[in-house]
C-alpha cells in the first residue's frame, strides 16, 4: 500500500518561492491565498542566529483532524497514497477543518469550498512530480512512497536527521524536514 510523503532538505532551501508560484500556476490558486508558503524560522539573539527556511504545505497527515471533523465527508483520504483531499461538491464551507488544522494549511476558496495542497494528485496519477517538486531550483523537495524502503524519500529519511512539524499535535504528518 503506497503512502505518499515528502522529504524536504532545509539545508538547500533558499526561500526563492519558486514552489509557491509553481503551485499557484498549476492549480489556479486564487489571488491572496496560498497552498504552499515559505516559513523563515529564526532562533537566537543577534549576532548568534540560526535560520531554517521551510517550504510548507498541507502535511497529508496519517491522522488527519480535518477529515475526522468534516460533517459531510467532503474531506477524505484518497485511495492512492493516503493523500488527504476535499471533494469540493460535497463541501459546505463550514470551516470546521480550517479550525482543526494545527498547520493552518487550509483556506476557503472564494468559490465556497475548503482548499489546500493536493500533492498534485492529478500529476502524480500520470507519473509526474508535484509542481513544486518539479520546479525547485536547488532540488530540495523530494516526493515519493514512504512505504517503499528503496524510494528516494525513504533513503533520505534513513540517512539524514529529520523532524516533522508539531509532532505533539498527534497528527502524524507525512512531510519530513531534513536538517
Amino acid at each position: 500500500m503506497a503512502r505518499f510523503g515528502m522529504a524536504i532538505d532545509t539545508t538547500k532551501c533558499v526561500g526563492c518561492m519558486d514552489c509557491v508560484v509553481a503551485c499557484k500556476t498549476e492549480n489556479n490558486v486564487p489571488e491572496g491565498f496560498n497552498r504552499v508558503w515559505i516559513t523563515t524560522d529564526v532562533q537566537g539573539k543577534y549576532p548568534n542566529l540560526h535560520m531554517q527556511m521551510r517550504s510548507e504545505r498541507c502535511n497529508h497527515c496519517e491522522s488527519p483532524p480535518c477529515v475526522y471533523c468534516c460533517p459531510t465527508g467532503a474531506s477524505h483520504v484518497h485511495d492512492l497514497g493516503g493523500v488527504v483531499l476535499v471533494e469540493d461538491e460535497l463541501c459546505i464551507g463550514c470551516k470546521a477543518c480550517i479550525a482543526s488544522c494545527p498547520y493552518d494549511a487550509r483556506f476557503i476558496n472564494p468559490e465556497g469550498y475548503a482548499d489546500k495542497c493536493t500533492f498534485c494528485i492529478h500529476r502524480v496519477e500520470k507519473g509526474e512530480e508535484p509542481a513544486c517538486v518539479a520546479v525547485c531550483p536547488t532540488r530540495c523537495l523530494h516526493f515519493g512512497d514512504l512505504d517503499d524502503p528503496n524510494s528516494e524519500v525513504s533513503r533520505h529519511l534513513n540517512s539524514r536527521r529529520h523532524h516533522t512539524l508539531m509532532p505533539e499535535a498527534g497528527t502524524k504528518p507525512t512531510i519530513y524536514y531534513l536538517t
Binding site: 529564526v42 537566537g44 539573539k45 543577534y46 549576532p47 542566529l49 535560520m51
Partner: peptide, 8 residues
C-alpha cells in the same frame, strides 16, 4: 519589523 536579523 523588530527583528534579531539586523545589526543595532
Amino acid at each position: 519589523k523588530a527583528t534579531e536579523r539586523i545589526r543595532p
